[in-house]
Amino acid sequence: EPLWIRPDAPSRCTWQLGRPASESPHHHTAPAKSPKILPDILKKIGDTPMVRINKIGKKFGLKCELLAKCEFFNAGGSVKDRISLRMIEDAERDGTLKPGDTIIEPTSGNTGIGLALAAAVRGYRCIIVMPEKMSSEKVDVLRALGAEIVRTPTNARFDSPESHVGVAWRLKNEIPNSHILDQYRNASNPLAHYDTTADEILQQCDGKLDMLVASVGTGGTITGIARKLKEKCPGCRIIGVDPEGSILAEPEELNQTEQTTYEVEGIGYDFIPTVLDRTVVDKWFKSNDEEAFTFARMLIAQEGLLCGGSAGSTVAVAVKAAQELQEGQRCVVILPDSVRNYMTKFLSDRWMLQKGFLKEEDLTEKKPWWWHLRVQELGLSAPLTVLPTITCGHTIEILREKGFDQAPVVDEAGVILGMVTLGNMLSSLLAGKVQPSDQVGKVIYKQFKQIRLTDTLGRLSHILEMDHFALVVHEQIQYHSTGKSSQRQMVFGVVTAIDLLNFVAAQERDQK
């Protein structure tokens, strides 16, 4: 057995438009009618409502009807409940999964919650491996369901041993009777949507819809739904939504950006999952974080739909894509998950301010006199920076000697690579993860907040409520011999709460 199987392995699926269902090699399930009293909570997966979006479509000038398939009504709160249950049931049916076995899954959280929910009911041990950027709410729900959680670096490539995929496979090879159901490759993922989600949409719309818009992560949702719609409703256009920084969209030119990270969760990847059939997507749109969270908040405030950030991405694209539809036509959007997962993220004004998705003037509360002053007023001194090749031991000596707790790590040209902190280095040394002679590049981390000289002290204040420091950066445009230009970030300084307090105190003292 291989040590790991690539999540982007070539698909062996034989589905073709027009091929009889009787030739399918898979076990198919028909939607079942729910009894009045459910035998367990797993029976509350599927049969989610279709809700008309009344205000947002009109606000953006849509002539067509805009409908939302509300997947956050599933038992675990997301569309991923469907595939989690289906993968477990299919693994039980073919004898792969037996009582007492362990389920391991690399996930952005929602599939993990679905699997942990099913594992709690069915009696399996469950280990979820997820990147650090995923919300604390997801972690809390997983723990409450009895799952064990392993976190991995957000910026690790999918084929790196440190990625959530790599760590999951390492655990599988170490733990007896453990299984990775593997949402990236498992046919049960798109089949769950082909058999149930798509049929529900067709039934709820009486077979009449002209466009379907869905955000894409593993691709199982859009693949399964689109294949069924292509068979039953061939005139329906399928629109895929991919965040900026991901590479799922086609044509490839759409993916060209210097951005590699994004805040919206559960969609987009740096590889093409095996289950994603991009041939059934008629057109791709890219979405960005700001519009995703703005539209998610709009869905909550104006439509009462308590959905997550990827739902915002989907609707932001839908109001663009559906401009081509006329009166009497219908566009369906998939709202994948609930706001429950993001209470401390985009639902929080403070978080939105820190990330730059909300401006101070958007909030009406009274601010102190210094709130709208610029960061450049602080008069920061030149920063202490270190090269990635310097040793951890030497870096600790320098920081202690100069009285700093942290320093930016830059390359020879001064471009920011990340940050090192005294606390992080000492804990890594004590844990045996690094040696004093190791290069400081081994303990770089990139989960820090950046701020510009033109940003306000109010925004800085919000950042420092949650973080010990902020890195002050400025952009530099560099022209190359080819005539092309590129933008790079340079370090201007490091600012802490002490710097802000000293500035405010000094100004008030001078005024007296």
Results as ranks from 00 to 15, higher is better:
243 P>S: 07
244 E>Y: 09
246 S>E: 03
248 L>D: 02
251 P>F: 02
251 P>W: 05
252 E>H: 02
267 I>Q: 04
268 G>K: 01
275 V>D: 01
277 D>T: 05
279 T>N: 15
280 V>Q: 09
287 S>H: 11
291 E>N: 15
293 F>P: 00
295 F>K: 10
298 M>A: 10
304 G>D: 03
304 G>K: 02
306 L>N: 03
307 C>P: 05
320 K>M: 14
321 A>P: 11
321 A>K: 04
327 E>H: 07
327 E>M: 02
329 Q>M: 14
332 V>T: 04
334 I>N: 00
334 I>Y: 00
334 I>F: 09
341 N>H: 02
342 Y>L: 02
345 K>I: 05
346 F>H: 03
346 F>S: 03
347 L>Y: 08
348 S>D: 14
349 D>N: 15
353 L>R: 08
356 G>K: 07
356 G>N: 10
359 K>A: 10
359 K>P: 04
363 L>A: 04
363 L>G: 12
366 K>A: 15
373 L>M: 07
374 R>L: 11
378 L>A: 12
378 L>K: 03
380 L>S: 10
388 P>Q: 10
390 I>W: 15
394 H>R: 14
395 T>A: 15
398 I>Q: 10
399 L>I: 09
401 E>K: 15
404 F>Q: 04
406 Q>S: 05
412 E>M: 07
413 A>K: 12
418 G>P: 02
420 V>N: 00
421 T>S: 11
422 L>I: 14
424 N>V: 15
428 S>F: 12
431 A>D: 15
439 Q>V: 12
442 K>R: 15
450 Q>R: 03
451 I>V: 13
452 R>L: 15
453 L>Y: 06
456 T>E: 10
457 L>P: 02
458 G>Y: 07
459 R>F: 14
461 S>H: 08
462 H>N: 08
469 F>W: 13
473 V>T: 15
475 E>M: 08
480 H>S: 11
482 T>F: 15
484 K>Y: 15
485 S>Q: 04
486 S>I: 15
487 Q>S: 13
490 M>S: 13
493 G>R: 12
493 G>K: 11
495 V>D: 08
498 I>L: 13
499 D>K: 05
499 D>E: 07
500 L>A: 15
504 V>W: 10
506 A>G: 15
507 Q>K: 15
508 E>G: 14
508 E>P: 11
510 D>N: 14
511 Q>E: 13
